[in-house]
Design a binder for these strands. Structure first.
Lengths: 146, 146
DNA sequence: GTGCAATGTTGGTGACGCCAACGTTGGCGC
DNA sequence: GCGCCAACGTTGGCGTCACCAACATTGCAC
């Protein structure tokens, strides 16, 4: 009465999409307690790792459209987690900077996300986790080239 | 200038989500040539494998909300791929049936999707593909229980 | 027969990914 | 210098997928 069609259950794209749904749900629940979304975390993480950047750079690094970066930076700056200032050396650009408040925010989101990762990988042993990460990483790298 | 933050690149949930984006894009392109969506394929596949069913059953089997089943069946029946008729034995239900036209439709979508699968798995060898499918399947099964 | 559960339907929300258009600004060839 | 093209930020919109609340109808158990 509730069995999934074999046409779907056997296809990697189905497994991938459905598992991504669970991953997204777990991450959303973790972020939701903080009132954040995935886009916010991406931007904060990129700023923390690479320092201040233009919105276009953020978009390229985080795999986000320029217009979505605008919205995310709007929300983050309203809450004081980032600063947005025109770049004096290139007046087309904005320089987005991570604030101290933003750093603590990122740490909180990191902890929340760690819990979600653990829940996602569930019963998998250490070797299986590494194997899965390796396979997914190889495939993703392939698709980001071509 | 375009490197992904390590905070993201190392997390299975990131790999999973981003790869699911590629999978969805490949499948959408394949379906798009036929003017179909993922929801359509799911419904057709379930009908083909388990025979006529109520919309609620379709939703449970395909992991779809009841309201989304309504929309999908609307579109599929407008195109003549399924029939929707009230169930005489339970007047709350509709019986959704796959038509002959729907069967050929499903075959076409299947072929299109096969190409997408091949493109998705790209450079992976046979053993890696099996391993990936095994790991994803195990995780998905785990999350569908709890 | 009354209360409860299931069903189909409508309408709406949100996250994510993506695209087109516009005005501003930089950089390059000429 | 001038003209052209590329890049940038911004606005507004769209499509897919997932999900929720409400409602009326119907079946079933008590």
């Amino acid at each position: 009465m509730e069995e999934t069609p074999a046409r779907l259950a056997g296809k990697p794209s189905w497994l991938l999409s459905q598992l991504a749904v669970h991953a997204h749900r777990l991450a959303s629940e973790a972020f939701g307690e903080e009132g954040a979304r995935g886009y916010h975390y991406r931007v904060l993480a990129a700023l923390d790792e690479f320092g201040a950047a233009s919105q276009a750079d953020l978009g390229r690094r985080c795999n986000m459209d320029r217009s979505d970066v605008v919205a995310a930076v709007n929300e983050l700056s309203e809450q004081g987690f980032v600063d947005r200032a025109p770049d004096p050396r290139d007046r087309r650009r904005n320089t987005v900077t991570l604030t101290e408040l933003g750093k603590t925010r990122l740490c909180r989101l990191d902890r929340a996300l760690d819990g979600a990762q653990a829940a996602l990988l569930g019963p998998l042993g250490e070797r299986d986790r590494e194997e899965l990460t390796r396979l997914l990483g190889a495939l993703l790298a392939h698709h980001q080239r071509g």
